[in-house]
Structure formats: structure tokens, C-alpha cells
């Protein structure tokens, strides 16, 4: 069952989510940007990752040590060359242990 008001909301949300995802790909399709702008856009992933991780990770639990411990275990696992899936599983495992104690 689907109420029409909710349906419109979902469609509207879908549209305003899709537009920012699609527009740059369509507009810059086969367009060569100026070098400085290219450089900035190449920097974006690493800057984004920094902002996606901090401060969010420290607020996943009321107990701030949850986030701190998760951060450290993921960082250590990744530093020693673990595959991303292993990094994920390792930090979940460490936090499960911590929750038990």
C-alpha cells in the first residue's frame, strides 16, 4: 500500500538526489577542464574521506572510546596493508570484544 502524499515525497526526494549525482557527469561528459580545476577535483576524494571520517566516527556511541578504538583498529589494520574488507571486519571484531568487556 502506498499513500499518494508519501509517493510524491519519495519521487521528489529521488529527483533531488539524482540530479546532483548525474549533472556533473552529463555536463562535463568529454569536457576537458582547466588544469587547476582538474587538480582540485583530483584532491576531492581524499578531502572527502577526511570529512566523512572525522568527526562522525567519534559519535557512533555515547561512549567516545568506541569511536576512538574503532578508529585506531581500522587505522592499524589498514596501515599493515590489510584489504578493506579485513579492515572492516577487524574493527567490528575489536568493538564487539570491547562491548563484551
Amino acid at each position: 500500500m502506498m499513500r499518494s502524499e508519501i509517493a510524491w515525497m519519495i519521487l521528489g526526494m529521488g529527483l533531488v538526489t539524482y540530479i546532483p549525482r548525474m549533472l556533473p557527469l552529463a555536463v562535463f561528459h568529454r569536457v576537458k577542464l582547466p588544469p587547476f580545476l582538474q587538480g582540485v577535483l583530483k584532491n576531492v576524494p581524499y578531502a572527502t574521506l577526511g570529512a566523512l571520517i572525522v568527526p562522525g566516527i567519534f559519535f557512533i556511541h555515547e561512549d567516545i572510546w568506541f569511536g576512538v578504538l574503532g578508529f585506531i583498529s581500522a587505522f592499524v589494520a589498514a596501515w599493515f596493508g590489510a584489504n578493506v574488507i579485513v579492515v572492516v571486519l577487524a574493527s567490528v571484531a575489536v568493538l564487539s570484544l570491547y562491548a563484551l568487556i
Binding site: 574521506l49 596501515w79 572492516v88
Partner: peptide, 27 residues
């Protein structure tokens, strides 16, 4: 308890994606 520890998963993934490049490039 599993829900709580799994909430770190995506953050751990972001860290796992970032660190290899962190080691390679000071930038």
C-alpha cells in the same frame, strides 16, 4: 551489541580506503 559494533563498519571502510594513499603521498 552487534548493531553497536557494526556501526563502525563504514567508517572503518573509509579509513581502509584512505590509509594506503596516506602512506604513499604526503599530500
Amino acid at each position: 551489541s552487534l548493531q553497536e559494533s557494526m556501526s563502525v563498519a563504514l567508517y572503518a571502510m573509509f579509513i581502509g580506503l584512505l590509509v594506503p594513499s596516506l602512506k604513499k603521498q604526503r599530500k
